[in-house]
Nucleic acid binder design. Structure first.
Lengths: 201, 201, 201, 201
DNA sequence: CGCTAACCGAGACGGTACGTCCAGTCTTGCT
DNA sequence: AGCAAGACTGGACGTACCGTCTCGGTTAGCG
C-alpha cells in the first residue's frame, strides 16, 4: 500500500516514520490537485502547506506524480466500492452510478487531471492501471459474466466491448464536454447499452 | 487558421513571415510529440531541430503548448474530413472509422497526449475545443439529424448521447487500454449502438 | 567626419542619404544618453524615437556605441574650442574652464558614460581617442609649450604630467565624487598646479 | 562584508552555504574581468568555470555586476592597506604608490572596468563608493589632517582638493592614456603637488 | 537512563527549461 | 539606391522548480 523505497532495513530501529507528516502531505497534495493544474503544482508548496520538508517527500515517494497518485488514492480508497447486492446487472448499475458521481464536481477534476498525467508518464500510468483501473475492471468483468450466467445478458456479449460502451461516454463527457454527468445521463447510457446487447441475436 | 498574435497590423509591410520556418517548426514539434512525452519536450530542441531561433517560436505562439497544438492541426487539417457520400448513417460510419484510424499508431499517441495537455491548460483547452472538437462535433450532429429525417434513426434519439456512446469507447481504449482500435472494433461498437437506438421504444 | 561604411560606391546614384534621418538619430541618441545608463539603451528605441528604421542605423554606423559617440560629438563639435586669445596660459585657463563646464550637468553625465563605454570597447576607445581626446590634448600641449617659450612656465616642466595634473582632478570628480565641478574649483586647481610648476627649480 | 541577501534568517538552519562555491565563483569572475570586457562576460560561463550552477549566483548576488564587484574586493581586501608608519606625509606617499601599483598591469585593467561599470549602474556605484572608495578616502583625509597638525602642510590646505590633485592624474592615465603609471610618475606627481600646497601663501 | 539509529525541517545546491530581451542582419515593397 | 517596417538568428538574462545534499535537532526503543 505504501511506497516503500528501500528493502526494509531492520524492522523497527530508530525513529519511526511520522504518520502525521504522511497524512499532511497527502491532504495538501490532494488540495492542490483539486485547485490547480497538475503542471503548476510544485513540490515546495506542497511541502510548505503540509508543514514538511521537501526531503521528506522524496524519502517516501520516487517523484511528484507518485505522491499525487497516492493523494488521489487516499481519498478514493477511503470510499471503496460498495459490495454487490441484488442481481449482477443491478450491482453493475450501482457501480456505474458511483463512477459517474466520482466524475462529477471536484473529484471529477482530480480524475481528469490524473488521467491526463498518466498519458505522459509511463511509470505513473503503470501504477494507475495496477492500483486503480485493473481492480475495478476485473470486478466489473466478473459481474458481467455473472449476468450472462444468470441470463440477464445473452452469451454472445463481448465483455470488454460491453463495458467500454458503458464507461466510454462518461469518460468522454469528463474530458471533452462541459455537460454534467448526472444520474439521468448515466442511467440513460446504461439502459441503452444493456438494451442493445440484450436484444442482439 | 494561423495563430495571429496581433490584430492584423497592415497588409504587407516589412519582411514577411518565413513560411519555411513556420513549417519546419510544426514538423519538428510534431516529430517530438510522436516520440516523447509532451512534458519532456523543450522549446530549445524544437527550435534546434527546425533550424530556427527560439525567439521565432515565441513571436508566433504564446507558449509551447500552443505550438504543439498547431503541429497537431498541421497534420490533421491536411487530411480533412472526406465529404459525405451515401446515406447519413453510412457517412457517419465512415467518419467514425476515420476517427478510429486517427486513434491508432503514432497519431493515436499524439492525440492522447493532446487530450492530456488540454486537461491542464485552460487556454489550450479552449483552442482545442474551438478548432478541433467543435467543428467535427457539429458536423456529426448534423448527420445524425439527417439520419433521423430520413428515418434511419427514430425521432426519439438524443443526438448528444448517441454520439457520445459511439465515440466514448474509442476514447476509453485510446487513453486507458492497450487493446487495438481496429476496424472490427469500431464497426462492432457502431453497429451495437445504432441497433440499440434504432430499436428503442 | 561621418562614419562611412563602404568605400564610396558611385558618386551620386539613387536616393541620397536622408540628412533628416541622420540628425534625428543623433538627437534621439543624445537624448537617451542624457537620460539613462548607456547599457539600458536599445537601438530599437533610438530608432523609434527618431522615426527611423534600425537598419538605417547599421547602414551608417558599425554599432550602437559608434552612434552614441557621434551623438556626443554632434553636441560637442557644435560648440568647438574657442580660439586662443591673450597669453598662452590665459588661453589654457579658458579651455580648462570650458572642460569643467562640460563636466557639469547633463553634458557631464554624458561624458562620464562615454568614458565608461570606452573602457569596454576597443574600437570605440580608439575612435574616442582619435576624434575627441587627441585633438584637444595636442592643442593643449602646444599651448603649454608656447607658455614655456614665453617664460610663463619654466623649461623644466614635463608637459604631459603638467596637463594630467590639471585635468586629472576634474576627471576624478566627474567619475567618483558628487561634489560640483564649478568655476571656483577649476580655478583653484589650475592656480595651484601652475604655482607648483612655476616655482619648481 | 559579504552580500547578505536577506536579513539574517536564523543562525544555523538548513544546509550551510558552500564556501568552496563562493570562492570558486569569485575567482572565476575575477579571471574573466582580467581577461575580457565586462560587457562580454556572461553568468553562464562564470558558473561553468567555477563548476557551479547559475542559480547559485543569483541566490547570493542580485546581478552579475555585484558579483564582479565582490570578485574585485576579494582580491583587493586580501591585500589591505599597509598600516601607517613614519610621518603622515610619508605614509600618504606609500599609499599613493600602492594605488599607483594597483592601477598597473592586470589589476589596473580590472580597476578601469570597475570604474566604468559604476557609471552605468546606480546600485553598483553606491556599493563601490561605500565599500571601496569611501574607506580609503576617509583614511587619506585623516592623514592629510595629521600632516597639517604636524606642520608638514600649511593649515590653509583644502583637504579634498589636495587629495584629488594627487589621485586625479593617476585616474586620468588609467582611463585615457596608454602611458605607464610607474613609481617615477607617481612620485613626480606627489612631489609637485605637495610642493605646490606647501609653498602656497 | 543514556545510546544510537533513523527520522525530520530548513534550506543550499547542480542542472535544466522557461520566456524575454536585445544586437545586428536580412527581406519586402515603397519612394 | 535609400528607406521604414518588421521578421530573423544567436545568445544572455534572471526565474522557477526538481530532486539531491548537508546541516542541526528530535524521537523512538534497546541496552
Amino acid at each position: 500500500m505504501k511506497a516503500a523505497k528501500k528493502t526494509a532495513p531492520s524492522r523497527t530501529l530508530g525513529r519511526p516514520r511520522s504518520e502525521s507528516s504522511r497524512v499532511a502531505l497527502l491532504k495538501a497534495a490532494y488540495g492542490f490537485v483539486k485547485a490547480r493544474p497538475v503542471g503548476s503544482i510544485s513540490t515546495v508548496e506542497i511541502a510548505r502547506k503540509a508543514g514538511v520538508s521537501t526531503a521528506t517527500i522524496y524519502r517516501w515517494w520516487p517523484n511528484k506524480e507518485a505522491l499525487l497518485l497516492d493523494a488521489f488514492l487516499y481519498k478514493t480508497d477511503s470510499a471503496p466500492l460498495l459490495k454487490a447486492k441484488g442481481s449482477p446487472l443491478g450491482s453493475l448499475r450501482e457501480y456505474v452510478l458511483q463512477v459517474g458521481r466520482s466524475f462529477t464536481g471536484e473529484s471529477g477534476i482530480v480524475a481528469a487531471r490524473l488521467l491526463a498525467a498518466i498519458q505522459d508518464n509511463a511509470t505513473l500510468r503503470k501504477e494507475f492501471l495496477e492500483r486503480v483501473y485493473s481492480p475495478r475492471d476485473k470486478e466489473f468483468r466478473a459481474m458481467v459474466r455473472a449476468a450472462i450466467r444468470q441470463r440477464q445478458l445473452p452469451a454472445s456479449v463481448n465483455v470488454n466491448v460491453f463495458l467500454e460502451t458503458i464507461f466510454g461516454p462518461l469518460l468522454l463527457r469528463l474530458l471533452l464536454r462541459q455537460e454534467p454527468i448526472d444520474r439521468d445521463y448515466v442511467l440513460t447510457v446504461f439502459k441503452q447499452v444493456v438494451a442493445a446487447y440484450r436484444r442482439a441475436q
